[in-house]
Design a protein around this nucleic acid. Structure first.
Length: 735
DNA sequence: ATAGGGTTAG
C-alpha cells in the first residue's frame, strides 16, 4: 500500500496543561454544569455559558470539556458556538481537540474536521486512538481518498493499527469510498477478527452489490451478532434478492439470535417487495407477542407491506391505529391507495393531511398527482403545481414536474402540460415520454412526432414508452404510413422488440383505416398471444366499418379469453344493431340476462370548484338534479332545432325500445355537460372524464352543444381526448 | 470519549 505523510507528526511528550482543576466532585455537582445536560435551546446554552464565566468555571478544564462536548455533540448544541468557545480556550487539551473533531465528524462538512486535525498537530498535540475513528469518519465523506490514505499513514506511524476501534474505522472509511481492495488489505493484515470488523467489510461489499463476497465473509464470522445478521439481510434485500434475504432471516431465527427493530424493518420491506404476506403476518404477530413497542417506523413498514400485498383493509387499520403519524406514514398510505387504484381514497387522505396542516413533500405529490390525473381533478393538480412552484429549489424534483405534465395532459389541459414541459430546467426521458404521450392522447399527432424528433436531437434514447406515445399518435391521427415507418424504426434502429401495447397501437391504426388484412398479418406475426384489448380495438374497428363477419370471428376469441366481460356482448349487440340484425341483438340480450351479466355502467365526472361530481346513466342523485334535467330538456330542444337526429342503433341492451331515445339523452356525459353548463360561467371550458368510450350519438350531440352554447368541451374517454369546439371535434370523428 | 447495520415512503 502506498501511503504518504505530509502532515507534521509531533512525537513530543504529552502536552501537559499548566492549570489544575479544583476537586472533581465539586465541579461535577456544580449547578451551571448540571443545567447543561438538560439544555434544550441555544438561548439557554448562552445563559449557562455566561453563568460559567461569572463563576470563573470557564478556567477549569472540566467545564471547558463539558461545554465543548455539549456544543459539539448534543443535538441541541451548535458547532459554530463550539468553535467560538474553542477559540477562547488558551491551550486546549487533547480531549478538547478530539471532541471538536468528533463534533465535525457528525456533520456534513468533513473538511473542517481535517483542518482541526492539522491544527491539533501544529499545536503539538499527538492524536491518539480516540482521534482516528472521528477523523476517519470525516475522511469517508470526502470526495477524495487521498486525505484518508494520509491519515492511514499517521495511524501506522503511531502504531495504532492494532487498536480495534481504529482498525474498524479504517475498514469503514475505505469501504465507504469504494476502495474495497484497501479495506480488504487492512482486514487481512490484522489478526483482529471480531464481528464488528467483519461487518464493516461485509457492508462495503453489499453496498456495491457484491453479495457473494459478502456472504463468503459472513459465513466466516466466528460469532455473529445481530448487527452482522442485519447487514446481510439488508444487503440481500437492497440488491433485490428478497428470497435470500428472508432465508437469512429464517436462519437467524434458527440460530436463536433475537431480531431487533432494524432486522424487522428490513424483513418487512423484503416481504413487501416480494409479496411474502405470510412471513409479513408472522413478523407482525411476533412483534405483538413479544410486546415490542409498535413504533411508527415498524407500523409504516407494515402498512406499506399490506398495501403492496393488496390487503388495504389491514393496512388502513394499522394506519388508523397510529396515534402519532409521521409524513412517511401518510405517504405510505396514500401511495397504497394510488397503487391499488383507490384514487378517491388517496385524495381524501390527502385532504385530511391538509386539514391537519401536515406539509406534504415530493413523495406525497408523486402519489397524489396520478390520482388527480385519473380522476380529472385539475384544480387540486393546479394547487400542487402552485405549491411546487413556490418551493422551487427545495422541491425541485424532476419526477414531480414530469408527473405534473402527465396530470395536466390527462386532465385535459394540454397547454398547461406544455408550459410545464418547456419551463423545466432538466428533463428525464420520462419527461419527454409524458409530453409525447400527452400530445398523442389529445390527437396532436404532428406535434407529438415533432417532439419525438427533438427528443432524439437532444440526445435522449427513446424507450418502449416513447414508442407507445409515437405509435398511438399515429393511430389517433390516422397516420398509417408514418405508423408503419415508426414501427420498423423502433425494431430496427432502436432494437426495441414490440410489446403488446405497440401491437395494440398498430392493430388499432390498421383497423380504423379498414386495413383488416394488414391487421391480420401483424396479429399472426406476434410472438405472444394477442390480449383482449387488441381484439377489442379490432372489434371496435369492425363496428366502424360494419364488418360483421370479422366481428363474429373476433368475438369468439374474446368470449374464450374473457367469458365474463359483458363489454364484448354489448359491442356485438351494437354491431348487430348497426347492421339491422335485430334477431341477433335479442339473442345476445337473452344471453346476457341468462348469464346475469351487467354492463359496466357508464360514469362521467366533472370537477367544479375543486369538487369532483360523478354521474351515472339517468342519475338523479345529484342535489341539483332538477336544474340539471331542466337543462337537459333545453339542450334536447336546441339540438332538435339544430337538426340533430339520434341514431338509436347504439342502445343499452336492457332498455325497452320506447326508452331508447330517453336513455341516450340521459347518458352520463350529457348529465355532466348539463351540470357544467349550469354551474360554470358562460364561455368557460368544460372538462369531463368518462370511464367508457363516447358513443357516436353523444359525440355528434356534443359537437353541436359546443356550438350552440359557445363552449369548448374537453372530454376524456377510455381511449383518448376529444376537444369539441364550434361544432367539430379534434378527433375528426375518427376514434 | 471512540468502531460495524444503506431501518420505513416514490
Amino acid at each position: 500500500m502506498v501511503v504518504s505523510s505530509t502532515f507534521p507528526v509531533s512525537l513530543s511528550p504529552l502536552h501537559f496543561l499548566p492549570k489544575s482543576d479544583p476537586p472533581h466532585n465539586l465541579l461535577q455537582n456544580h449547578p451551571s454544569l448540571s443545567h447543561l445536560s438538560k439544555c434544550k435551546s441555544i438561548e439557554t446554552l448562552k445563559q449557562i455559558h455566561s453563568q460559567i464565566i461569572k463563576t470563573g468555571l470557564h478556567n477549569t478544564q472540566f467545564a471547558q470539556v463539558k461545554l465543548i462536548e455539549f456544543c459539539a455533540i448534543d443535538p441541541y448544541g451548535s458547532l459554530a458556538y463550539a468553535l467560538e468557545v474553542f477559540k477562547s480556550i488558551d491551550e486546549p487539551n487533547r480531549l478538547i481537540w478530539n471532541t471538536m473533531i468528533r463534533g465535525q465528524s457528525l456533520c456534513s462538512y468533513p473538511i473542517v474536521a481535517i483542518e482541526l486535525y492539522v491544527g491539533m498537530l501544529f499545536s503539538g498535540i499527538e492524536p491518539n486512538s480516540y482521534t482516528f475513528p472521528f477523523i476517519l469518519k470525516s475522511c469517508g465523506k470526502l470526495d477524495s481518498i487521498n486525505e484518508g490514505k494520509q491519515i492511514h499513514g499517521q495511524v501506522l506511524k503511531l502504531g495504532l493499527e492494532s487498536d480495534a476501534f481504529v482498525h474498524t474505522s479504517l475498514i469503514t472509511m475505505y469501504a465507504q469510498k469504494g476502495e474495497l481492495g484497501y479495506a480488504r488489505l487492512v482486514f487481512d493484515k490484522s489478526c483482529l477478527r471480531d464481528a464488528v470488523s467483519f461487518t464493516a467489510l461485509i457492508t462495503g461489499y453489499t453496498r456495491r452489490g457484491l453479495l457473494d463476497d459478502a456472504r463468503g465473509l459472513f459465513d466466516e464470522i466466528p460469532v455473529r451478532d445481530v448487527v452482522s445478521w442485519n447487514a446481510m439481510i439488508a444487503g440481500y434485500a437492497q440488491s433485490g434478492q428478497f428470497e435470500e434475504s428472508l432465508a437469512i432471516f429464517r436462519e437467524m431465527r434458527r440460530a436463536e439470535v433475537i431480531p431487533n427493530e432494524r432486522t424487522l424493518l428490513s424483513v418487512v420491506s423484503a416481504c413487501a417487495q416480494s409479496g411474502s404476506l405470510e412471513l409479513g403476518n408472522w413478523v407482525r404477530s411476533w412483534i405483538e407477542k413479544n410486546s415490542l413497542r409498535m413504533n411508527v417506523r415498524i407500523v409504516n413498514a407494515l402498512v406499506d407491506m399490506y398495501s403492496k400485498c393488496g390487503d388495504l383493509d389491514t393496512a388502513q387499520n394499522l394506519f388508523e391505529s397510529l396515534s402519532r403519524r409521521d409524513l412517511i406514514s401518510w405517504n405510505v398510505m396514500i401511495g397504497g391507495y394510488t397503487h391499488n387504484s383507490h384514487y378517491k381514497e388517496a385524495l381524501s387522505l390527502f385532504r385530511q393531511m391538509q386539514q391537519l396542516r401536515i406539509d406534504p413533500n415530493e413523495v406525497t405529490f408523486l402519489s397524489i398527482l396520478p390520482a388527480c390525473a385519473y380522476l380529472g381533478a385539475l384544480d387540486l393538480g393546479k394547487w400542487i403545481h402552485a405549491y411546487v412552484d413556490k418551493k422551487r429549489g427545495s422541491l425541485t424534483n424532476t419526477s414531480v414536474w414530469t408527473s405534473l405534465i402527465d396530470m395536466y395532459a390527462k386532465c385535459g389541459d394540454i397547454e398547461a402540460a406544455k408550459q410545464v414541459f418547456y419551463s423545466m430546467e432538466t428533463r428525464h426521458s420520462a419527461s419527454w415520454n409524458a409530453m409525447i404521450c400527452g400530445l398523442a392522447m389529445h390527437g396532436s399527432a404532428n406535434e407529438a412526432l415533432d417532439l419525438y424528433s427533438k427528443m432524439i436531437d437532444d440526445g435522449f434514447q427513446p424507450d418502449q414508452i416513447t414508442f407507445v406515445g409515437v405509435l398511438s399518435a399515429c393511430s389517433h391521427g390516422g397516420l398509417v404510413e408514418l405508423g408503419r415507418q415508426y414501427f420498423s424504426c423502433m425494431i430496427q434502429d432502436h432494437d426495441i422488440s414490440p410489446k403488446l401495447q405497440h401491437y395494440g397501437c398498430m392493430v388499432d391504426l390498421f383497423g380504423r383505416a379498414g386495413l383488416f388484412d394488414e391487421a391480420g398479418t401483424l396479429l399472426n406475426s406476434m410472438e405472444m398471444e394477442p390480449d383482449s384489448s387488441i381484439w377489442g380495438s379490432l372489434l371496435a374497428a369492425c363496428k366502424v366499418h360494419k364488418n360483421v363477419e370479422l366481428a363474429e370471428y373476433i368475438a369468439r376469441n374474446l368470449y374464450e379469453l374473457e367469458p365474463d366481460n359483458p363489454g364484448v356482448y354489448v359491442l356485438m349487440s351494437n354491431i348487430y344493431a348497426g347492421a339491422g340484425r335485430w334477431d341477433d341483438v335479442a339473442r345476445i340480450r337473452t344471453l346476457l340476462n341468462d348469464k346475469g351479466m351487467k354492463k359496466v355502467p357508464g360514469c362521467t365526472s366533472i370537477e367544479v370548484d375543486s369538487i369532483v361530481h360523478e354521474f351515472l346513466v339517468a342519475d338523479k342523485s345529484h342535489p341539483q338534479s332538477k336544474d340539471i334535467y331542466d337543462m337537459l330538456d333545453e339542450m334536447d330542444r336546441l339540438l332538435v332545432m339544430a337538426g340533430h337526429v339520434s341514431d338509436t342503433s347504439e342502445v343499452l341492451y336492457d332498455m325497452d325500445d320506447e326508452w331508447k331515445e330517453g336513455a341516450l339523452t340521459h347518458h352520463s356525459e350529457r348529465l355532466a355537460i348539463a351540470y357544467g353548463l349550469i354551474s360554470t360561467k358562460p364561455g368557460t371550458t368544460i372538462r369531463i372524464v368518462k370511464n367508457l368510450r363516447v358513443c357516436g350519438n353523444c359525440h355528434s350531440a356534443t359537437k353541436l352543444i359546443s356550438m350552440i352554447f359557445n363552449r369548448e368541451i374537453i372530454a376524456r374517454d377510455r381511449n383518448r381526448f376529444h376537444h369539441f369546439k364550434n361544432g367539430s371535434c379534434s378527433c375528426m370523428d375518427y376514434w
